[in-house]
Amino acid sequence: MDKKLDDYKQAYHDIEIPEELAAVTEQAIERGKLHRKRAKARTSWVKHAGVSAAAVFVLFTVSVNTMPAFASALENVPGLGKLVKILQFNKGSAGGGTPQDAVDVSFITVQKQGDQESIILNFTQDNEVQQNASSFHVSFTEYPNSAVKDFETLKQSPYIEDAYEIISLDDSLVRFHVTFKEAIAYEVKEYKEPAQVVITISPVEVSPEKQQPVYAVRTASVPYGETLGAMEESLLVADNMRVLKDKQGGYFVEAGYYRTEAEAQEKMKQLKHEFGVVEPLFVEKREYLEVPGGIVAR
């Protein structure tokens, strides 16, 4: 072969291989695996849809993470920074971020794209925009459909019934609650530089057989304040505990909700006798999407 060409070939093979190469290829494969998993989850969701009522909750979660509408929406995510991760919801609950001191959710914005809406939470620390989201937790529950997160801007959204802050006796915690007017599909993404959490919601159809009433085990309503915080602490033993606002603006703690009244009564007994909850508890029947009523302790 020509000498010059030989030299070029030698030079080509002398191109220095950086140390990072192995890590970069592994990352790419991980990205590919994630893609495969999502594609797989999508097909299995179609296969098992509507199999049993007991599995509905989990299926809902799977469908949310893999909703085809969201796959196309991924390209134009409204976050400004770098995507850290897309939260995977397990039983409607997921968290992310890194624990940090003295942080606050500084402002919340709502962005609309077609019938989808994105709720963007921005984090600050000492009045500076934070680069990494502080530790956060989002949980989605039903009856009424809600996400524990926050406020005024949120109430402008056509999908949102109400948004309010929940008192926390622990200073390091900022909590919000959002009640949705209708059934929604959701996706939550965490960004860094700057820190943002983007919750994308869009309406979904819910079949009538899934819109059965439930029986909730709950406390009486109290005004916003420390009593509420104390009530919550006494009910920490309950698995699906959450703080909610009633129709009249009072707050209460819900220990959980059940398909039948008997189940709810049973759970209430268990809380009183096995876990020694002294707070007066009530069983309340609630329709799908109905905002809880006020119960006054006697």
Partner: peptide, 18 residues
């Protein structure tokens, strides 16, 4: 340059995988 080359490698491997 290294940065761009690594980016191309990553994209290549990802596209190949999927």
């Amino acid at each position: 340059n290294k940065e761009d080359s690594l980016e191309i490698v990553q994209e290549t491997v990802y596209r190949a995988f999927i």
